[in-house]
Design a protein around this nucleic acid. Sequence first.
DNA 1: GAGAGGAAGTTATACGTACAACGTCGGGGC
DNA 2: GCCCCGACGTTGTACGTATAACTTCCTCTC
Lengths: 340, 340
Amino acid sequence: MARSSTRPTSRDVAQAAGVSQAAVSLVLGDKWRGRVSETTAERVREAARDLGYRPNLAARNLRLGHTRTVLLVVPALTTEFFAGVYTGAARVAAAHGFGVVLYPSPEGIGPARDPFASAQAALDGVIASSMAADALTAIRGDQLPLVMLDSDPRGSLGAATVNLDITDGVRQITEHLLGLGHRRILHLAADVPSWTFEIRASELAARMAAVPGTEIRTARAPISIEGALAATETALTTPGPRPTAVVCDDDKLAAGAYKALRRLGLRIPDDISVTGFDDLGLATAIDPELTTVRLDAELFGERGMRALLAVLEDRRPEAGDIPVELVVRSSTAPPSAGQA
Amino acid sequence: MARSSTRPTSRDVAQAAGVSQAAVSLVLGDKWRGRVSETTAERVREAARDLGYRPNLAARNLRLGHTRTVLLVVPALTTEFFAGVYTGAARVAAAHGFGVVLYPSPEGIGPARDPFASAQAALDGVIASSMAADALTAIRGDQLPLVMLDSDPRGSLGAATVNLDITDGVRQITEHLLGLGHRRILHLAADVPSWTFEIRASELAARMAAVPGTEIRTARAPISIEGALAATETALTTPGPRPTAVVCDDDKLAAGAYKALRRLGLRIPDDISVTGFDDLGLATAIDPELTTVRLDAELFGERGMRALLAVLEDRRPEAGDIPVELVVRSSTAPPSAGQA
DNA sequence: GAGAGGAAGTTATACGTACAACGTCGGGGC
DNA sequence: GCCCCGACGTTGTACGTATAACTTCCTCTC
């Protein structure tokens, strides 16, 4: 009552209940069995409730030496993919008494040099998703336990990695398209320096090179509708035989490609096939529905969090890439007779 | 050297530099002018760099009594709208030395009863966006400074509120549609108990009621493509004169409506007009491009953060709703002659 | 040459918590 | 009657930081 302006502390609760601060800590920390009587314990709980007591986390963290909080660094929030990653990570974390703080790495938010200055929560570990290699080393500077998601296992400086089986996803797309009879492909590549996109390009090139008589052309675009539209339009109006399929690095690029194709008067999939990557909600919002590779974002997040938990407990993280699955919809078909 | 397993403290830095811990705090806290010589300061900075010292935030927060960290509670991350809100809030926060921690309120993530147990960072304040009223009271239980975004000013229990001018958005949609000659409208409403949607419904009803000869029908759907598809299909296959326009509570619902209309063989906008709300990337990804109300998510986040800053400093938050703007694209046209 | 005062530090302390170590009291075994 | 032990607490301390208050030494002024 005397100090109503400031939040009550465990000492205030102790005074209200007529016990020592230690007893309060014991009771509220659920460590009182055989140390405090049931009636006293109840009195403490009641006092805490009446005062609206909430433990000061800064003090607890300081005392305990850990925070049970981890940081999830993602490149952006503009795609629901990372929402799924967060959801999965947060679910596993919650089950282990951990919290997850999200940090969308800035493209204009304050000083990018220090990912931790902005998200200034005290942390026990970091999960970094789809980061460029240079950003990685900055993060690695802090000696926090680290798990890398979707990043080059060779360049991860010894940090644990968890990856989607992108390679297999590209394989499935390639086989699907080749199986339909496509031979000339335009690769609409994300103009982002990230391993997850580099591996798409290299794997696609390797797969195509293995089949005689195939041809691959590459266009680069920032991940946006407009960027993809412009890049696709340019690529398809250059001279030479027109590709019969466009392989896009993700669904958003595919949506941009749709617009370019429509503008050029090409029908999907009759005149040209299109594939995506991610299977966002967008994939079924556009017409025709997009053939794409489904990535299990939530499982990805779960695996990432479990790996971090393993690192924190000095265990060896689960091995193996996360399987992905081609979802065939209506944007792919055999090339039309005249072009094949 | 002796204790290489644990992170270095300011005391370790002090020892390495041959000064007291206080001097380290002074130098690193940039409060050393006239208290420590330049050469000593440089020695301290060098020692800190060599040891890879990072201040223990838990200790700092405890000492300072604040964390310079605020929580942004959002309903979900599946729409880029809240990414914008975060970006705006984080930008303003960074400029004031604050950090923003994102908390997507759970639909399956751990115990929903306590928004703060999961995001266990120590906080100075909370910004809650588009929350249902009951969730609000739970949050209000903690006596943290609170700003409500997009919520009923009357039901906010005295918390500061910042709102988009949804009412005006609905007015613009209505006038646009009525001006084109539409009289029978289907309202595809989000089946979510949130003020931002309730106000759309009530305002739309009021506007329509003011014009004689108009008719409004309502369909409810969860915010998803499939949900909107089903609800729209049902609503349009019931007997009676068909509406000439569908007003959707947000763009995602509109995308679902598109699919239903296509399935019913109706052309947009020739046979029926459609409007959305939000102006997400989705709005230009679908065909035809969607007439919708643009909400400035980043400005929204900025205003929210500024309001919270004001509350924290015992100032009065900026008043006035945030203007919104109708973006007319290709999904609206006058009703065809036969139907008007 | 005495005293003021500034420069360059240091010492001591508090923030709120969790928990190890230490009392105290009464009853039961022998 | 004594000791031991379990039940029920309490006292004390450390976590790492920021900063108020103090000390020392040196220079400058009159």
